[in-house]
């Protein structure tokens, strides 16, 4: 009998509709308005790579130890260096990081002994060409500059 009444009065339907109705309230809206409002990115986010420079003298922190290139599962980091005859140290010349093959696992970051290579919170990595995804030393040091759109 109750079952029949429930069927006639569409109790199950209205139960579901009530749930949908409850969620209509504006304070329950959870959609992010992405380009207008920037999302909060976690501090540990593994995004675009950056090669840190010493803020005091603008010198690179990288010691050309090649550990990041060894740690990378995809072999996408190429470190170019020359031996400085005066200081007997390796001087960094080029640093190439191919983000088109990168899976942002963070192993290079973990391997770096001087915290020079770092995966940052920048996440807008789209580019118009394949070459644009290959970061050279300049981009890595300055950081990516995504286009800012106005609305």
């Amino acid at each position: 009998m109750t079952k029949l009444l429930r069927t006639i009065f569409l109790v199950d339907l209205f139960q579901g509709l009530w749930v949908t109705f409850r969620t209509q309230h504006p304070k329950n809206i959870v959609t992010e308005q992405y380009p207008e409002h920037r999302p909060k990115i976690a501090e540990r986010y593994r995004g675009a790579p950056r090669l840190n420079i010493n803020p005091e003298n603008g010198q690179t922190l990288c010691i050309s130890c090649d550990l990041c290139a060894v740690a990378c599962p995809e072999n996408l980091i190429i470190v170019g260096w020359v031996r400085n005859p005066e200081t007997k140290r390796k001087d960094l010349v080029t640093f190439t990081y191919d983000t088109s093959r990168c899976m942002f696992c963070g192993l290079c970051e973990d391997a770096c002994p001087v915290d020079a290579l770092e995966l940052t919170q920048d996440f807008e990595l789209a580019s118009y060409s394949r070459e644009g995804a290959i970061f050279d030393r300049q981009i890595l040091e300055e950081g990516i500059k995504p286009t800012k759109y106005r609305f």
Binding site: I41, A42, E43, R44, Y45, R46, M103, F104, C105, G106, D110, L119
Partner: peptide, 23 residues
């Protein structure tokens, strides 16, 4: 994301334990 820096393909665990301390 807050714990290990990635949302989907997390790579949260390492062999022998964890890489990241909890936030």
């Amino acid at each position: 994301e807050k714990y290990c820096g990635a949302r989907l393909t997390t790579h949260a665990f390492r062999i022998g334990g964890l890489q990241y301390e909890t936030y």
